[in-house]
Amino acid sequence: MNTLKIVQISDTHLGASVDWTTEAARKVIDYIDTVLRPDFVVHTGDVQVIDPDSAADRNHGYGLLSGLRTPYRVLPGNHDIGEPAEHAWQGQVVTSERVEAFTDVFGPAQWRVDVGEVTLLGLNSELFGSGIDEEAQQWEWIEETVAGIGSERPVLLFQHKPIWTVVENSDHNLDIRESGALLLEHLERVNLKSVGTGHLHCFRTKQRGGALEVWAPSTAFMAGAGDLGLGDPVTQQLGIVEYTIEGGNVTAELLRVPGVDDALMTELEDVKASVEAVLAASAQ
């Protein structure tokens, strides 16, 4: 098996009026295309800064990502399409209309891509536990797709939120909750090598049986991981993740992108303004 390189970027939080995250994304794209030159790129969601109903932010994000010369796919996060109703941030609940708005621009919200002898699977984590029609359709797609992969090909899974529980009894949608166990049952039929997610704005790797769990950081800003009680030590840093697949084994390395300086959300006035606009609208 030839050595393959896959790059994961996540939580770019792009907005038409948000200069900081836009400039960071441009540097990330240039670094990927001119320095890393991987075989494939996966964006694991929260393309948009904060508002899933902002067509301007959605189109802005697409315009930037379409500048990638490397083949890529995009998955939705909660700020792209909303999330399950229980504990949904500011009432941003996933709906069929929001899913359609995303897929009209970025393409399917779940996909299989074969890169050489490796299979990449992308899933829409915001559907799990949502109860909308698209959730049932995704479960059917997972069952059919897993059956078609077989048990030999190495599989790298990507989605926005973690499968395994992050914090017990959290009031935040940090993972896919009860759906995680069922999803893992489906994945027992494939040679699952890694699970790459975003959402938590920090980096961590943890071996989960035969699979490497990877939390990818944001390219936009760091969040208060300590405030969420994440438990295990995490790396608070902006960056991207480079996966190396060699001989059927998968490793993941956190990379800092030159020129992208670490920042907290509270330090970014244009991001704060976007958040305040959403808060004001939800209070009406």
Rank of each mutant, 00 (worst) to 15 (best):
L4G: 01
I6Y: 11
I6H: 13
Q8N: 06
Q8M: 05
I9M: 04
T12M: 13
S17A: 11
S17Q: 11
I29M: 08
D30N: 07
T34H: 10
R37Y: 10
H43R: 02
H43Y: 07
H43D: 13
T44V: 07
V47K: 12
D51I: 05
S54N: 09
D57W: 03
D57P: 08
R58L: 15
G61M: 06
G61A: 07
L68S: 07
T70C: 08
T70W: 04
P71R: 06
P76C: 03
N78F: 08
I81P: 01
G82M: 00
P84L: 02
A85W: 09
A88F: 12
Q90L: 07
Q90Y: 05
G91I: 05
G91V: 04
R98S: 05
E100Y: 05
A101H: 06
F102D: 04
F102V: 02
V105R: 09
G107T: 02
V115R: 10
E117Q: 12
V118C: 06
L123A: 05
I132P: 00
D133T: 00
D133Y: 04
D133L: 04
E134L: 10
A136I: 00
A136Q: 11
A136S: 08
Q137E: 15
Q137K: 15
Q137V: 13
W139H: 03
W139S: 09
E140A: 13
E140R: 12
E143N: 14
E143V: 06
T145C: 05
A147P: 01
S151T: 09
S151K: 04
P154R: 12
L156W: 10
I163N: 08
V166R: 00
V166C: 01
E168W: 06
H172T: 09
H172I: 04
L174E: 00
D175P: 07
G180C: 01
L184A: 10
L187H: 08
E188G: 01
E188M: 06
R189T: 01
L192Y: 01
V195P: 00
G196V: 01
T197V: 13
Q207C: 06
G209I: 01
A216S: 15
T219S: 15
F221V: 14
M222R: 09
A223Q: 13
D227P: 03
G231R: 13
V234Q: 06
V234R: 03
G239D: 10
G239W: 11
G239R: 13
V241G: 06
E242H: 05
E242P: 01
T244R: 15
I245H: 01
N249H: 15
V250N: 13
V250W: 10
R256K: 15
P258I: 11
G259S: 11
D262F: 08
M265L: 12
M265R: 04
E267L: 03
E269L: 11
D270M: 07
A273H: 07
V275S: 03
V275L: 12
E276R: 14
A280G: 05
A283H: 05
